[in-house]
Design a protein around this nucleic acid. Structure first.
Lengths: 213, 213
DNA sequence: CTTTTATTGTTTATTTATTAACAATGATAA
DNA sequence: TTATCATTGTTAATAAATAAACAATAAAAG
């Protein structure tokens, strides 16, 4: 399904809507109102309705949105029809955390491989994901048509890993190291640094505190 | 130091500027141009200059910005003068990742305590951080005047942990579970979900790929 | 049958964030 | 001394994101 130029933030929220909807799906409810979704995610009902408008979904005036239908539609929009395969590079704590957290999550993404240099980890399986030596990276990625790479290695090694990933034909990179990477324009890059997040929380917590006291 | 209403994004970038500046500080350079900072972080030089304008920092027309001075000024603005203490709740892979990643990072934030329910972890020290049982959470937080909490427990437990943190007087929470939390307005809450990030990368990687092929 | 109510869908307004434009500066070279 | 150059600092313009406003609708109540 094709919708032109969905805003970045809307894409992010669609993923969150789906997650939230899956959580309440079990609870024998079949429909949900925009303000209920909004409350779950700390946003406004207008925001929700606007996003749903953008993806062309219509709810029922009296009952709200059909949960199952909406989950399905979001999938049609944000998932790739043929699925996408993912690899984690770096099986330290963060890499392991990602894999175990990913485990059992539905969706069209499948975690295919992990890479490390530690001999104790290589050729073992972690939460269903086999670990290979980093020097097999290109081969495994090409063979399995893996299109997304998650970088969780020590930051010094991040640039060379990124380069290998790009050369192996990866399409998107999620970088969890504090080292900003350079990749060609045809590779989508997202960077996240935990310390930056923490410092942001610290700043606004301090500020908030001053405001409320 | 006080600057009124620094934009959210600017605060985030200030933290990144500092990180980047600390990285190049060693390299015997004393000054840096806006376009150099920009290149490191994949943003525009104007963005950098604008942010620095907002915090009232002036560079040298010919030499650029004094790296040490700028690092110091950013510290005065985003750090709390008296420092802030941090605790991690949940010592699984993600909690451990956070602690080990945090280790050795300067800044006015100090990691004081970790909490878990696993007896094998309790009363041990991880990367310099002592682990306590969760039922000691309130006591330890109050005793040590901890103001920031990071939640890395399984998502079902997140709401009760958040509640305990709030009752213990925490000022800011960084939630890494996919369960959105509710906290009073005087507590600053930041939520991050790895799967959402991954789905976003998957979406834009797919889109990018179509555009470039 | 009419009014009230709660909701959706959409347009318009506002706010926030980014980018463009350009004057001012002062070192360097002509 | 004068012109050239690369840079900063700031204002103005644009774009992206959010929120407000409100008509349309259909169920329920009177």
């Amino acid at each position: 399904m094709f919708i032109k130029n969905l805003p970045h933030k809307t894409v992010e929220r669609l993923s969150q809507y789906r997650r939230a909807l899956l959580m309440i799906l079990s609870k024998e409810k079949t429909h949900v109102f925009s303000h209920e979704i909004a409350q779950m995610l700390h946003i406004t009902p207008v925001q929700v309705r606007r996003d749903l408008m953008l993806i062309g979904y219509s709810g029922n005036l009296r009952k709200g949105y059909d949960i199952k239908e909406l989950i399905e539609l979001i999938g049609k929009i944000i998932d790739s029809e043929r699925g996408q395969r993912v690899a984690v590079v770096g099986l330290g704590n963060l890499g392991k955390a990602f894999i175990s957290y990913f485990k059992g999550k539905r969706s069209k993404l499948s975690m295919i491989a992990a890479f490390d240099i530690n001999p104790e980890k290589i050729n073992r399986v972690f939460d269903g994901v086999p670990c290979y030596h980093i020097n097999q990276l290109t081969d495994i990625i090409k063979q399995n048509n893996i299109s997304i790479g998650i970088i969780t290695v020590p930051s010094e090694q991040a640039p060379e890993i990124a380069e290998s990933l790009v050369l192996s034909g990866i399409k998107g990179i999620l970088n969890y190291t504090p080292k900003p990477l350079n990749v060609p324009a045809y590779v989508y890059l997202e960077e996240y640094d935990m310390i930056t997040s923490l410092e942001k929380v610290a700043f606004f917590a301090k500020k908030n505190d001053e405001r409320f006291k």
